[in-house]
Design a protein around this nucleic acid. Sequence first.
DNA 1: CACATAAACGGACCACTGATCCGAATATAT
DNA 2: ATATATTCGGATCAGTGGTCCGTTTATGTG
Lengths: 188, 188
Amino acid sequence: MRADARKNRDHLLATAGTAIAEHGADVSLRDIARRADVGLATLLRHFPTREALLDALLRTSFDELTARAEALEASDSPRDALVSWLRDCVAWTTEYRGVTVLMAAAIEDTESALHASCVTLRAAGARLLARAQAAGAARTDVDGADLFALVAALAWLGDQPSLAPRADHLFEVVAHAIVTSPARTGAE
Amino acid sequence: MRADARKNRDHLLATAGTAIAEHGADVSLRDIARRADVGLATLLRHFPTREALLDALLRTSFDELTARAEALEASDSPRDALVSWLRDCVAWTTEYRGVTVLMAAAIEDTESALHASCVTLRAAGARLLARAQAAGAARTDVDGADLFALVAALAWLGDQPSLAPRADHLFEVVAHAIVTSPARTGAE
DNA sequence: CACATAAACGGACCACTGATCCGAATATAT
DNA sequence: ATATATTCGGATCAGTGGTCCGTTTATGTG
C-alpha cells in the first residue's frame, strides 16, 4: 500500500472513531470524510461499506473480548466468568451507539464485513456458557445463539436513550434468569 | 374536514398499513404516497411526521392492548395475566416491523405523536405488574418502566431477522425471570 | 344554478444521504 | 528525470424527508 494511502486510511479510522463515539454508528459517512479532510470517495474506497469501516474500527475491541473470554475459561467460577463476560460485552457496546443493530444484521449475513467477528464472538460466548452449564451453573435450555441474541437485546436497550437508565438493572435480572439460582451474583 | 380530504386520509392510512406490514415501519413515505396515488405533500399534511402516521395507524391496536390489560386485571391469576399480556404485547409488534424503535424513542419525547399511546400502554402494564407483585407472583424490584423496556427489547429482538427465531424462547426465559418461580408458566 | 371563497392538492424545489465515475494529481520505481 | 501505476476528490446520480406556492376543487351562500 502506498504511503499516502496508508496515512489517509489511518487518519480516517481515527476520525471515524471519534465521530462514531460522538454521534453513534449511523453518523454520516460524508461527515467523517469531511472531518478527515478527505473526499467521500476516498473513504468509500478504503472502506466500501459502513460495516467494513466498523469492522476495521472495532476489530481490536472484538479481539479483546474474545481473548478475555478465553482467559475466563480458566477461571474457577464458571458462573461468575460467564456473567462477568456478558457484562463486559454489553458495557462495550455503549461505547459505540448503534453498533448493535449492525451486528445483529451481520451475524447471519455472510457478505457483511462484520460477519466473521460476530461469529467468533458468539463462539467465545458459547464456550463460556457450555462450561457454566457443565458445572450446573447455567440453564441448559439456552445456547450460544440465545446468548448472542440476549446480549444484543440488552445492548440495544442501552442504546436507546429513554431505556438506557434501566439497562444495568435489567441486565442483572436477565443474567439471573440464565445462571442457575443457588448463589446470587451479588451485584444487585 | 372536507370530503375529499377525508377520503385521501383514509386511503393513505389503508395504504400505509399494507406498505408497513410489507416493508417495515421505515418504508419510504414517498412510496406510501405513490401507492396511494397522492403527492408526498398531501401525506405529510395529513400526517406531519412518520410518528403521526403510525399513531393514527396503531391507535386501535394500542387501545385493544390497554383494554385487554384492564380486562386481565380481573383475572384470577395475576401471574398468568401478566405473562399472557406481555406475550400479547411482544407478539403484536411483529405485525409492524420497526415500530419498536420508534416507541422506545417516543416514550420520553413528549413532542412525539406516539408519546401518549406509549405512556398509556406502560401504565397498563404497570398495573398488571403491581397486581402480580401484590400477589407475590412477580419480582418486586422491577417497575412499569422496566417492564416497558424489557418488552421493547424482546420486541426488537423479534424484529431482527437473524435473532427472531430465538425470540419466543427468550421471551419465556425472561418472563420466568420476572414472575416468581413457584409454578412455571408451563410454556417451555 | 352560479359563483365566491376557503381548503386541499401536488409538482418543483431544498438539503441531505450512500454510491459511482473518471480526469487530475502524485508517490514510487526505474 | 521520467514513466507508470496508484490514489485522490469533485461532479454526479438516485434516493430520502420536508417545504413552498400556484392550481384545482369542494362547498355553502346568494
